[in-house]
Amino acid sequence: MFVIPAKAGISANRPQDPHFREDDKEENPILFLTNMGHNNRMKVKIYQPSKNAMQSGRGKTKTWLLEYELETPRTPEPLMGWVSSGDTLNQVRLKFDCVDKAVAYAKKEGWEYTVIPHQERVVQPRNYLDNFKYRPHEEAS
């Protein structure tokens, strides 16, 4: 059906193949599975961390973060079996005061970005007196 070029021992290697050429992709689907689906532009996501459901504090929910998308899987390293990754951008998080600044920065760098919309908290006024508020026991008709 299709010919797999000899240069590619590809199917197992997920990281980008340095030999990959743009015109190969039409003939060779496997190359697509291994390298493609990401063009060379860096991908980032911009979001405002939501409040940790486990805690009440909102300290870290005010800044906007710009994070790089995972580009390679984490794998066990051969010596100790610890989780490793060659992708150093994994650890980088840029902080911005507002979403516009983050977007402007990503645009300036020519990155592909996605903005995860911020969810506004709706606080219903509540106080102790509400515990004694009259509520009908039966359904209203």
Binding site: E26, E27, P29, I30, F32, L33, M36
Partner: peptide, 8 residues
């Protein structure tokens, strides 16, 4: 991606 590869 799998489907894209299949289409090729």
């Amino acid at each position: 991606k799998i489907l894209r590869a299949l289409s090729t």
